[in-house]
């Protein structure tokens, strides 16, 4: 049989047997729960009471409750500040590491490793670490540094506005590594000849950054932006160990809000509705990521 005929047979082969385990596992443990959480959001279910009826009241009540608006504001500030600083800091570090490698400076790989290590530490441990660092006791190193510069002790975790700042700071610390990694990858894909040509034309460092690095990096910056936005919206573990959403509800971002609604207030349908809201954010952002990714891939082919 010729190779062409073989390829023809390959095209007719049925993939479903190969995909069957995936379909079963993902179907039972992912797709079905997702559909079920949507269904639950249209009921009045209580965690400890099995009977329920279908209703739209859950959503009505959710959207007008003051707690929801407050949570949205907290989530928005947390996500916006985290994403902006992860993006900027990631870019600066990626540029520094690349410059270090080009110049053959010692300590470049060490710097990159130290940044990346923060990214494999479990989120729950990151929360514990920052709780120790930000403490007002004498082991709270950050307050000690402030004391050395002659400032007052700051109760980082005990005042609502400061607690939100602290949680965001810890999240920037956690997420910058991933952002740096992507942008570093993007920098390495810019052909060296572009810079050589620019140098011949007399372009300075800033002009090279402005007219070569930034335009070349733009697709990856967008992908990165979307990815870290999704990851930040999903943040749960780190805040759980750092502030548990407190003081009050000042650091209760969307996933913690869904959690407390269900497991503290036992309001299953209300929590499901919040989860659906988070789900909608996840799906829409993923769609944006996917479209950007495809545009990027098509440009690559050209």
């Amino acid at each position: 049989m010729s190779a062409v005929a073989r390829t023809g047979r390959a095209l007719r082969e049925k993939p479903w047997l190969w995909l069957l385990p995936l379909i079963i596992i993902v179907g039972i443990f992912y797709l079905y729960p997702v559909l079920d959480v949507i269904r639950l959001s249209f009921t009045n279910a209580h965690l400890l009471r099995p009977q329920y009826i279908y209703t739209l009241r859950t959503y009505e009540r959710l959207f007008v409750s003051p707690g929801f608006m407050h949570m949205m504001r907290v989530t928005f500030i947390f996500v916006f500040a985290s994403v902006v600083f992860q993006l900027l800091l990631g870019l600066v570090i990626a540029l520094a590491v690349q410059a270090g490698i080009k110049r053959g400076l010692r300590g470049t790989v060490l710097t990159r490793t130290v940044v990346l290590v923060s990214w494999v530490i479990p989120g729950i441990v990151i929360g514990l670490i920052w709780r120790l660092l930000l403490s007002t006791s004498s082991f709270g190193i950050i307050n000690y540094i402030l004391y050395l510069i002659g400032l007052e002790r700051v109760p980082f975790l005990y005042v609502p506005g400061l607690a939100l700042f602290s949680v965001t700071l810890a999240n920037i610390w956690r997420g910058t590594a991933f952002s740096m990694l992507l942008q570093y990858a993007g920098l390495q894909r810019i052909p060296e000849e572009f810079y050589e040509a620019a140098t011949v034309d007399g372009a300075g460092t800033w002009q090279q950054f402005r007219f070569i690095t930034m335009p070349q990096l733009r697709p990856i910056l967008f992908l990165n932006l979307v990815l870290i936005t999704i990851y930040t919206f999903n943040t749960f573990d780190m805040i759980m160990s750092l502030t548990m959403g407190g003081p009050g509800r000042s650091t209760e971002v969307i996933s913690l809000y869904a959690y407390t609604t269900i497991w503290r207030q036992l309001n299953l349908s209300g929590g499901a509705a919040i989860a659906v809201f988070l789900l909608a954010i996840n799906v829409i952002t993923t769609l944006v990521y996917y479209l950007l990714h495809r545009i990027g891939a098509e440009q690559e082919v050209e």
Partner: peptide, 29 residues
């Protein structure tokens, strides 16, 4: 290796699942 109907859409579906917070599925689970 295979070309089949639903290939692109199920791949996209997997990407969506990757991005969904585990909290969402933990509730019904």
């Amino acid at each position: 290796r295979f070309q089949f109907r639903g290939r692109q859409s199920t791949l996209f579906g997997l990407l969506v699942f990757q991005m969904i917070s585990p909290l969402v599925i933990a509730i019904p689970l």
